[in-house]
Design a binder for these strands. Structure first.
Lengths: 145, 145
DNA sequence: GTAACTGCAAATTCTTTGCACATAT
DNA sequence: ATATGTGCAAAGAATTTGCAGTTAC
């Protein structure tokens, strides 16, 4: 198993949490994944190497990592999807209701919106989740043929 | 019970759905509410007048009204909140993680973001859900005292 | 050594569904 | 008249929790 990234191990220690094999595996799974994963997918993946690993631990690990700001959860429909929370790499989700694919877009364009929220409403933003539903370019092209 | 708004009754008829007392009550409850409500709250409210009314019907009514574009659902945490989908009155949610209150902000500032999504990614937007978590002005003030 | 964590099973919460009866059109 | 909708109870899906045993520190 690859070493846990500096930040995660540090953040856990600093906050008084223990660095367990299970937390490392959850972290590594998210780190190696190119896309966000739901708890089930993370669990299934880790189970291949550690059959006793289970969903309860998956959720508990994700909860801790999320609390430490290492992992970000996005809710799409009724389930949560998890991915690393990379500093300054904010992004949002475009969900195609036709093919089910999800595109990630950069968060730059949201900056003015978030500023407006703080300036006009005095609301201090900690996280912003934008989930856009619609039809992706490919499905759009197929539909208009 | 007040008369159902023109649009809802029309939309139901036009689409081949029946105009039932239950759907009217759900619609009226949302129309008279100043804030979004979850299914439970809607059901409880209607039960005061009609004790046989139940959650299953609440969800089924909301599903129809949402499908017709009369009602909009926003997911916050793990549950859905419902409100009227008023034409050109798009708005988003600021959830205070401290006191649990929700502010509604106008959607105007999101317009450039949505244009960018269509222009740059060819993604045709049908709905955009923005849920911002953080600390509302009141809690912010209290915390910095 | 001991407080924190895990595994397992059972409980919760939100939402959906099957089916017999009721009702809008 | 009959297809559609409702009420009730039971099923589902995602997530959380209680507890006895395990592990990081």
């Amino acid at each position: 198993m690859s070493a846990m990234a500096r930040t995660a191990s540090d953040a856990l220690h600093t906050s008084g949490y223990r660095l367990t094999t299970q937390r490392q595996m959850v972290w590594d799974t998210l780190r190696l994944s190119k896309k966000h994963l739901d708890a089930e997918a993370i669990c299934t993946s880790i189970r291949r190497r550690n059959p006793r690993f289970n969903l309860a631990t998956t959720y508990r690990s994700l909860e801790v990592l999320e609390k430490l700001g290492l992992v970000k959860q996005t809710r799409i429909g009724e389930r949560g999807y998890y991915e690393l929370a990379e500093e300054g790499q904010d992004h949002y989700h475009l969900v195609c209701d036709e093919c089910g694919s999800t595109l990630h877009i950069e968060g730059d364009h949201m900056v003015p919106v978030l500023h407006h929220i703080t300036d006009e409403h005095g609301f201090v933003v900690s996280t912003a989740d934008l989930v856009v539903h619609g039809r992706c370019a490919r499905c759009q092209a197929r539909a208009s043929r």
